[in-house]
C-alpha cells in the first residue's frame, strides 16, 4: 500500500517538473496557459499529498482558477500575437540556467543538512487552539494568532484593485466571446451550485480546511461567469457600490482590530466570549471583498463611459 503511494508521489513529482518545463519550452501562448493550469492542479494534488489541504484549496482556486482566467483574458487582448519567437540557446540563457542550477543544488544541500520534522509552531498552536475561538488550526493562525498578516494580505488585494482602476483605460474592450446555448445553460446550472460551495467553504473554515480566501475565490468564479456570459455588465453607476464592496473587508477587519483594544486588551485581542462570532463575521465580510476584488481584477478596468479614443480603436 505504502509502495503504491510512493510510486504515485514519484509520478506526480515527475509530472510537475515535466509540465513546468513544458510551460517554458512551448511557444504558443494558449498551450502555455493550458499547461500552467495543469501545473497548478498537479501542485494542488501535491499539497494534498503533503497533508496541507488548505494550501491545496487555495492553489486550486486562486493559483489555478483565477490566475488561469486572468491569463486567458490577457491572451484575448493580445489578438493573435500569441506565438513567441522560437527558443534559442544563447550564452545568457546558459549562464542563467547554470546559476539557477547552483541555487537549486545549494537548496537541496541545505535541505539535506536540515533536521526534518524539527521544531515548529504546531505544538504552540495546538496548546492555544481552545482560546482562539475556532477549532481548525489554520483558521486560528490566519484569523487570530497572525490576524495582522491576514489583514495586510487583504490589503494587498485592495492595493491591486486600486492600482488597476487607477490605470489609463487605453485598452479597448475584448471582443465578446462567441458562446453557444450550451454555455449559457451550463452557467445557469453551475452558478447556484458555485455560490453554495463558496459559502460552504467559508463556513467550514472554522472547523476544517476552507476559509475566506478559498471561499472568496469560488465566489469570484461566479462573478467571472456573470461577466463572461454578459449576465452582468459593470456600469459607471455601479462604481460607488463596487468601491464599498472592495474596501469593506479591510475596513471591518481593521475596525474590529482597533475596537477590541480596550479594557486592557491589545489590538487584535478578541474578547474570549465573542472570538468565534467576531472571526466568523470578519471572514464572511472579507470573503465578499475578496470575491468582488478578484472579479474586478478579471474585468480589469474601472467601468467608465467609453472615451472617444476607445470608440475609434
Amino acid at each position: 500500500m505504502i509502495d503504491a503511494l510512493v510510486l504515485f508521489d514519484l509520478v506526480l513529482a515527475l509530472a510537475i517538473i515535466g509540465i513546468a518545463a513544458g510551460v517554458l519550452i512551448l511557444r504558443d501562448a494558449f498551450a502555455m496557459i493550458v499547461c500552467f493550469v495543469i501545473f497548478g492542479l498537479l501542485s494542488a494534488l501535491a499539497w494534498v499529498r503533503l497533508a496541507a489541504p488548505d494550501v491545496a484549496l487555495a492553489e486550486a482556486a486562486i493559483g489555478t482558477g483565477v490566475t488561469g482566467a486572468l491569463l486567458l483574458k490577457t491572451l484575448a487582448h493580445l489578438r493573435g500575437r500569441t506565438l513567441s519567437p522560437p527558443l534559442r540557446v544563447k550564452g545568457g540563457l546558459v549562464v542563467n540556467a547554470a546559476l539557477c542550477a547552483l541555487v537549486t543544488l545549494a537548496g537541496i544541500g541545505v535541505f539535506l543538512a536540515t533536521p526534518i520534522g524539527g521544531a515548529g509552531l504546531e505544538g504552540l498552536v495546538a496548546q492555544n487552539l481552545a482560546a482562539s475561538g475556532v477549532a481548525h488550526p489554520v483558521t486560528a493562525v490566519l484569523l487570530n494568532f497572525r490576524a495582522f498578516d491576514t489583514l495586510m494580505e487583504v490589503v494587498v488585494l485592495l492595493v491591486a484593485v486600486v492600482a488597476v482602476w487607477s490605470m489609463e483605460r487605453g485598452i479597448a474592450r475584448a471582443p465578446a466571446p462567441v458562446m453557444g446555448e450550451v454555455y449559457a445553460g451550463f452557467a445557469r446550472l453551475v452558478l447556484p451550485a458555485a455560490v453554495i460551495v463558496g459559502a460552504y467553504l467559508l463556513w467550514i473554515g472554522a472547523i476544517a480546511p476552507g476559509g475566506a480566501f478559498q471561499g472568496g475565490a469560488v465566489l469570484a468564479a461566479v462573478g467571472l461567469m456573470l461577466l463572461i456570459t454578459r449576465a452582468y455588465t459593470p456600469l459607471p453607476a455601479h462604481r460607488g457600490a463596487a468601491r464599498i464592496v472592495f474596501v469593506i473587508g479591510t475596513a471591518l477587519f481593521a475596525a474590529v482590530a482597533l475596537f477590541v483594544a480596550q479594557g486592557g486588551r491589545a489590538t487584535f485581542e478578541y474578547p474570549a466570549a465573542h472570538a468565534k462570532s467576531l472571526i466568523l463575521i470578519i471572514e464572511a465580510v472579507v470573503t465578499i471583498s475578496i470575491a468582488a476584488t478578484l472579479a474586478a481584477l478579471f474585468h480589469g478596468r474601472e467601468p467608465v463611459a467609453v472615451s472617444v479614443r476607445e470608440t475609434r480603436a
Binding site: R146, D149, M152, V155, V156, A163, E168, G170
Partner: peptide, 24 residues
Amino acid sequence: IFNLYVMIEVIALAAIGLTVLTGR
C-alpha cells in the same frame, strides 16, 4: 520575517501603482 514579506508586497504593489499613475 513573514510579516515583513506581507509588508513588502503591500509596498511593492502600491509603488507600482504610483509608477504608472501618469498613464503614459
